[in-house]
Design a protein around this nucleic acid. Structure first.
Lengths: 214, 214
DNA sequence: CCCCTTGACAAACGACCGTTCGATAGATAG
DNA sequence: CTATCTATCGAACGGTCGTTTGTCAAGGGG
């Protein structure tokens, strides 16, 4: 009863974390449903039962993997943007970091959430519910930053923030589709161009200045 | 050796066609990989082995299902547009028929190709190759119609046709994602608004007239 | 009338899946 | 030293998958 979760060097914590990193990498390529305990265990270098013991069920493994992917996403995309000026600069930064993350995952299966989304829509359950929640938070993050940019006079105040977030998100999704399925080398540049163009159209005079300076 | 594939009433042809319609419907919900011979057979109302005999392997079943979905897509989206004036009107028509098809499939799992794409990218094989081919044809159809619209003075001639096709396709993909995963009721209207707005921006004076008249 | 093709069937096969069950080694606590 | 706990293991279980095999009824051509 002593030493409750404070031991940093315990094998338990670190091996669970190691498993989850492999799990995210594997799910990027075969999806959360295609994730297989036996194959995952072989990659990590332990037995099926040993790995399984860290999670009570496959669903729990999927949930933990989803949480790990969410953490990686926040760290790579959202957190860096919080040091950027709120409004259009921060929106621009987060969009390009997002594309950058998908671009860096190009040869590793692409976007984790895109792979998870299409196989989980239509299959009810806790994993799907959580994915809907996480994806909704991300889309809402974009929408809120659009609103802030409007309040600060960077973006035209009479545009529909939901609509703009919809379109910006569409470019990111399309770049992943284009790169992963069609093997299109220029997919990410196209997404960046589309985002730049769309923000330019929606920007006020002040906003346009900000865009040309970045 | 007589009677080679000319018998319309033979059970063979019609039951194979019936199987494929069920297969497309099932793949819309669970994907081409999630398609299962046993479950499919139960839905069709025949035995596993009886159904399997129509296709030499599961891969052949997947290929035939993909072909059936392609035929349905062409019939619902591409063929009707061929009666519309080439250029911007035809492009506009095909885009809206596309959205309309996804909207009508809303409660049946959404877009077949979107479901197939993310689970097949990264899994080499004949099915993936064919899906890449079919998807490429569709994207190229859009691009070519953009070019025609430029040649006819409907769209600004100095825009990148590949880029515009990329963005228009992005809205369609996003609408399916938003409707299927996020259960967003307004997803299809958003896609239509995005397409209208994007075409409006890219249109010449002549093109803008055409858009307001439709 | 017999033969042979055709479409469908039940049953079984091996492979792989998630999961359960004891056993084992090492660290920790009393 | 002994008892306990933790992480891991091999082996097995029941289930589902794609696939194979052998059988059977129906029907048309010689």
């Amino acid at each position: 009863m002593v030493n409750e979760r404070t031991d940093e060097t315990s094998t338990g914590q670190s091996s669970r974390a190691r498993i989850l990193q492999y799990a995210v990498a594997m799910a990027r390529q075969v999806g959360l449903e295609g994730l297989t305990i036996g194959v995952l265990a072989k990659q990590v270098g332990m037995s099926k039962a040993g790995l399984f013991a860290h999670f009570g069920s496959k669903e729990d493994l999927q949930l933990a993997t989803l949480e790990e992917a969410r953490t990686e996403f926040l760290r790579a995309v959202v957190v860096p943007a919080e040091q950027i000026e709120r409004g259009l600069p921060r929106l621009h930064s987060v969009l390009f970091d997002w594309i950058g993350m998908m671009e860096s995952a190009r040869d590793r299966g692409g976007c984790f959430f895109a792979a998870a989304a299409s196989e989980l829509d239509g299959r009810p359950g806790a994993v799907r519910d959580r994915l809907v929640e996480v994806s909704g938070q991300w889309l809402d993050w974009l929408r809120r930053q659009v609103v802030v940019a409007q309040e600060r006079g960077h973006l035209n105040p009479d545009i529909d923030a939901d609509q703009l977030a919809f379109e910006l998100h569409a470019y990111g999704q399309q770049s992943n589709w284009s790169a992963q399925l069609m093997n299109d080398q220029s997919a990410f540049d196209r997404a960046r161009d589309a985002m730049r163009g769309r923000l330019q159209t929606a920007a006020t005079g002040l906003g346009k200045e900000m865009l040309t300076n970045s």
